[in-house]
Nucleic acid binder design. Sequence first.
RNA 1: GCGGGCGUGGUGGAAUUGGCAGACACGCAAGAUUUAGGUUCUUGUGCCAAUGGUGUGCAGGUUCAAGUCCUGUCGCCCGCACCA
Length: 804
Amino acid sequence: MRYNHKTVEEKWQKIWEEKGVFHASNDSEKEKFYALIEFPYPSGQGLHVGHPRPYTALDTVARKRRLQGYNVLYPIGWDAFGLPTENYAIKNHIHPEIVTKQNISRFKKQIQSLGISFDWSREISTTDPEYYKWTQWIFLQLFKKGLAYKKEMNVNWCTSCKCVLANEEVVNGVCERCGSEVIHKVKSQWMLKITAYADRLINDLDLVDYPPRVKAQQKNWIGRSTGAEVDFKATTGDTLTVYTTRCDTLFGATYMVISPEHPLIEKWADKLKNIDEIRAYQLEASKKSDFERTEIAKDKTGIRLDGVEAINPVNDKIIPIFVSDYVLVSYGTGAIMAVPAHDTRDWEFAKKFNLPIIEVVKGGEDVQAEAFTDCDTGVLVNSGFIDGLSVDDAKKKMISWLEENKIGRAKVNYKLRDWVFSRQRYWGEPIPIVHCEKCGFVPIDESELPLKLPMVDSYEPTDTGESPLAKMTDWINTTCPCCGGKAVRETDTMPQWAGSSWYFLRYMDPHNSDALASKEALEYWSPVDWYNGGMEHTTLHLLYSRFWHKFLFDLGVVPTPEPYAKRTSHGMILGENGEKMSKSRGNVVNPDEIVSEYGADTMRLYEMFIGDFEKAAPWSPSSIRGCRKFVERFWNLQTILTDGDNIRPELEASFHKTIKKVGEDIENIKFNTAIAALMSLINDITSFGSISKQELRIFSILLNPFAPHVTEEIWEVCGLGDGIVAEQSWPEYDESKCVDKTIEIAVQVNGRIKTKLNVDAEAGQDEVLALAKADENVKKAIDGMNIIKEIYVKGRIVNIVVKS
RNA sequence: GCGGGCGUGGUGGAAUUGGCAGACACGCAAGAUUUAGGUUCUUGUGCCAAUGGUGUGCAGGUUCAAGUCCUGUCGCCCGCACCA
């Protein structure tokens, strides 16, 4: 019997839509379950087979939870502001709004063909003014609380296009578009003070259920380190403050290094005899990314300041100051004390420039040959009043000494930097601030929101690097909300991250025009119960949205300190060649072809069966047929259907075990083994030769979350009752029926398998060992030997250890 | 470079978390059925000099027992703040 997926899938998708069966209710007695996937960026390429993996996975969970009686919210929307759309618009002279509309409509059609149970009535787009009204509103609150501020920052500047470039647009130090040189240029940018939340972003990880690797990455990204600031004096009398985590090694500081951007260089310009050389070095450094600058493999570069030196405050020794690009202005104070004996980078630099290496922590090998960086075992030497102390004790004593003498202080530092929030681009949310000469930066009145993006003729950034909005004189010229005088609008827009930092709140109440969502909706749905996304979003999106959520929590807008109770992450779908799918590699697979040839159910099953959900998996077209075969074997069960309304005793254990396994595996994101269990069960059934109505009911419900169309159709065709989605509930299993009465035990002698025994599951150690020793092969192996040890691990294994 | 992760048959993967390595599939081989088959069914399938030996990137170690734990090493993947 041939299964026609096309008509069946279209039929059920239509029924679901007409009946609105996946619409979540904001007013329900049922327990709520909020499942969330990262909403897609609707790119011009359309969907590829990587997109449906997380959608199908959480769809499986959502469908199972509905069958278990939950009120499920499973929404989707569009993260539609972004660079590629803007670049496409520039190139093809089409307004980004039109491009976005086309892309969304294509994405939507593709996703809908997969039968995902999204609540389309709650669809949102970050580019919709009714949506970004609230993105702007949140920014205004951040501004009012002093968490949004302006700061001079480095940007990538293409010397030929005369515009700011994203890091991704800089390839090997040149502009991706025109190949011209890219330098760093200083520009005033809007910043968000995420560092104010650094501690809470670390500590509150205890409140949530995230995979350990995600927590570890977030913690390391925030990078809290406790150390000290130490004030060195320069020979000019200026103070040069450094941050160090190893203040115990202060006696071993034999030189200092400042970053090329350090402000003291300008101050000392007339005292520095080699200022020209230093300026040339600064220019070189401005062309490199932080990434290139901190690379250890490369040769260290640097220039010794000629004319200014520093004084080590613990021993008054005069030490040289270098400028080098391995010190970053963005971390700590932009200056370090160098202790080559106990830091690898300092050691390499000292070797290259022939600087003294003084051992101050004993415990390693020869510090002239290699830096000794271990903090746990070393003992201080050559260090005056801290000699003989452990590293930890020496740090404590040094900090109190520094504080007493007012030349240093304990200091907590973070790798996390404040969030650069400005973009000199068109296709983003306008920043709702005006600049008044009298009043400074003034927020526009909330009643003016949304501040809509005006239509412009060209989306090219201006020659000065301002956003295209800067050319809209009638838009930028306005009056100051504060004094009523002349003012100009901010022309920078927000980054794509803005809209995605709070979208999950909007889904709770997507059409609200008075608030980002109603209090009741926020109370009912918060927090997101399960958020799945990619590992690539662990440090940026996930952290940004947790930051915004905490801020909204402090304002009393949202009821929970954390947005997501649970986070899981999926592995990437790679191309057939095992490489990342990309247009340039030409290995992108479009799901449309699969859906059309094999059907959505097969596509869904394959995506879930392809491998461990958390790991990357290469696409393999030949394996898809196996999943199609499984769908057909299921469909053909109707040919061996009998009338019985219960599970027959012979299949009872198989069924109960499978109900248990499939349910647990879905919750544990082990979709591949859940499907394997269903395949095993169908093997049992077909070898048994027939299936009862009740057996088919249970099998269909278990398979329904993975293959919702074919299961619904067989249910109808076989007259099994009211539809699955409409009326059925997830089956229960009986634990006592899941255990086997007899089990097979492997018997080893000295770790080598000699035989296998079938024993009663409840049999004790003595009984099993006696049986084992009675076996011919075992007898042969232990004959004439001394038995040293006999091990029986219940239900698993026997091992007899013998010696001659 | 820094942070996080991965490495198992010809292929995708499984392994009750220290207890029979290779579940379930794909592929391949042989056979049966058939009407044209990229159909369906049955059987076999880690490797080797095959009653045995060997085997989870590589080299060591702990243990009665290691894919799983420890040390070292090699390779690959993700992120690195203006891609999303």
